[in-house]
Amino acid sequence: MSKLYNTPFEASLRILLILETSRNQSFSADMLAAIDFISIYGKEFGISDENLHGENNYKFSEFTLRRELIKKAIKQLVLDDLIKVHPTKNGFTYSINQKGLNYSEYLSSDYATAYRRAVSLVREFTSDKTEREVLEFINRRSIYSLRED
């Protein structure tokens, strides 16, 4: 049986859900990784009542790995023509296209529903923050978590 969890394929499904939930917006790879991470571990950030992937003492060490998975997933999503690339003066951002929206409509599991809800909460929380502020928030929470243990 092939591995499904912690793969670019799994990350690509979550990226589609993020972009579907934020339809008319585009995000950098780092911002997508941050939204994904906070959505999965919302309880740790005071945004939701649960962590979608359960309790994990090493969750903050996952962030670097998730960033790499997100970058690989983005490449595949672009090649599959499910997301659009937008060049900016600060690099590239990504948004969902109609083909990606059509695909994401089929993502209808309980997990997909819970993840969409978590993304909406995270988007509301981050709406007035810059990418740098969001990444610093993750970093501060990571340091705080280490001190708690």
Rank of each mutant, 00 (worst) to 15 (best):
A34R: 00
A34W: 06
A34I: 02
A34Y: 02
I35P: 08
I35F: 11
I35M: 11
D36N: 15
D36T: 14
D36S: 14
D36F: 14
F37C: 04
F37G: 04
F37S: 05
I38W: 13
I38S: 11
I38Y: 13
I38E: 08
S39E: 07
S39T: 10
S39M: 04
I40W: 05
I40L: 14
I40V: 15
I40R: 05
Y41L: 03
G42A: 10
G42V: 13
G42K: 12
G42S: 11
G42L: 12
K43A: 15
K43Q: 15
K43S: 14
E44T: 08
F45N: 06
G46C: 15
G46H: 15
I47W: 13
I47K: 09
I47G: 11
I47L: 12
I47N: 08
S48R: 14
S48G: 13
S48F: 12
D49C: 12
D49E: 14
D49V: 12
E50Y: 05
E50K: 05
E50M: 07
E50R: 12
E50F: 07
N51L: 05
N51Q: 07
N51W: 09
N51F: 10
L52W: 10
L52P: 00
G54L: 04
G54I: 03
G54Q: 01
G54T: 02
G54Y: 03
G54C: 02
E55M: 04
E55R: 03
E55L: 05
E55A: 08
N56A: 05
N56V: 07
N57Q: 12
N57K: 09
N57E: 10
Y58C: 04
Y58P: 00
Y58R: 13
Y58L: 13
K59A: 01
K59C: 03
K59V: 01
K59H: 02
K59F: 06
F60A: 00
F60K: 01
F60Q: 02
F60Y: 11
F60H: 01
F60D: 00
S61C: 04
S61R: 10
S61T: 14
S61L: 08
S61I: 07
E62L: 01
F63T: 04
F63P: 01
F63I: 01
T64V: 11
T64E: 09
T64L: 08
T64P: 00
L65G: 09
L65V: 14
R66S: 05
R66L: 14
R67H: 01
R67K: 07
R67Y: 01
E68N: 11
E68Q: 11
E68C: 04
L69Q: 03
L69W: 04
L69R: 02
